[in-house]
Simulated scan of single mutants.
Amino acid sequence: MLIPIFLIIHWYASLFFQSFFHHRYAAHNHFTMSKAWEKFFYICCFLTQGSSYISARAYGLMHRLHHAHTDTVNDPHSPSFFQSIPALLWKTRNSYNDIFKGYTIVEEKYSKDLPEWQSFDKFAHNWLARVLWGVLYTAIYAVFVTHWWMWLFLPLTFSMGALQGIAVNWWAHRFGYRNYALRNTSRNILPLDLLFWGEAYHNNHHKNPGRANNAVKWFELDTGYAVIKLMHRLKIIKLKAMR
């Protein structure tokens, strides 16, 4: 039963670095870190996201546009305009690729203080790297699969990062509860978030995007923020004052 264990570890590792580095660091600048640590976490993202690796700079730009234009035609990934998850996934992919390749002209105010490592992205963000990751994942499954149904998880392993992003972007704008009445459809998916490292509190986040801790109510738990506080105490990062 090593495949389910591998899948669980991959889920939490990939999602943590997407939440920690891409979302809270690149997009929102909740904390600072040295260039050496920045490069270390770039590599961590590559190792955990694998075939679904995304550029921190391109993600940061896309997410800033999402906050600036939430649920409007200029939102790069609003479910308000799509009736299915595959349609939203395709839209998000195209929006991201256009930003990454420079086809989308973005105002300068959205591109400030973004991490960038062009040479690494050139290495990690290409089809050859994705194919090699796919070969590695398939080999892992070939060695450790013990029942035929475990092969059904292989597509999830290939596209882990993209599916995690769409899970939050779809569900958190359609289902859940709201702590704040905002002029958008953002919702909190889970009252106790043990699946998404605190990213399930999307309504809270849209209310206070500059706040590193997404939890607000007494019963809410932002596990990602707990790790961030530990990193702050270890002087790996430096948390900014709550905004």
Rank of each mutant, 00 (worst) to 15 (best):
M1I: 14
P4H: 01
P4E: 02
F6Q: 08
F6R: 04
F6L: 08
L7W: 05
I8K: 01
H10Q: 15
H10G: 04
W11C: 06
S14P: 01
L15A: 06
F17W: 04
S19P: 13
Y25T: 03
Y25I: 10
A27F: 00
H30F: 08
S34I: 05
K35C: 15
E38A: 07
K39P: 08
F40T: 15
C44L: 13
T48Q: 01
G50T: 09
G50I: 04
G50Y: 11
G50C: 04
Y53W: 05
I54R: 05
A56L: 02
A56V: 04
A58H: 05
G60A: 14
L61P: 12
M62H: 05
L65P: 06
H67V: 01
H69A: 04
T70A: 15
D71Q: 05
N74L: 12
H77G: 03
S78M: 02
P79L: 00
F81N: 10
F82L: 07
P86M: 06
L89A: 11
K91P: 11
K91G: 04
S95C: 07
F100V: 15
K101D: 10
G102Y: 04
V106A: 07
E107V: 15
K109T: 11
Y110K: 09
S119F: 15
S119R: 10
S119L: 13
F120C: 05
K122I: 14
H125D: 15
H125L: 14
N126G: 07
W127Q: 14
L128N: 01
L128S: 05
G134I: 10
L136Y: 13
A142E: 13
T146Y: 07
W148Q: 09
W148Y: 09
W149L: 11
M150W: 15
M150C: 05
P155N: 05
F158E: 05
S159N: 15
M160T: 08
A162D: 11
G165F: 02
A167T: 07
A167R: 10
V168K: 00
V168N: 00
W170G: 00
A172H: 04
R174W: 07
G176L: 00
G176T: 09
Y177A: 10
Y177C: 01
Y177E: 03
R178D: 08
Y180G: 02
L182P: 03
L182Y: 00
R183A: 13
N184T: 02
S186E: 02
R187P: 12
R187M: 12
R187Q: 09
P191Y: 06
D193F: 03
L194V: 12
W197S: 01
W197P: 10
W197E: 03
G198E: 13
E199H: 03
N204D: 12
K207F: 11
N208L: 12
P209E: 08
R211Y: 14
R211M: 14
A212T: 07
A215Y: 03
W218N: 13
W218L: 14
F219R: 05
E220K: 02
L221H: 09
T223K: 02
Y225G: 01
K229Q: 12
M231N: 00
M231K: 05
H232N: 15
L234N: 06
I237G: 10
L239D: 04
M242W: 12
M242N: 13
M242K: 13
M242R: 13
R243Y: 13
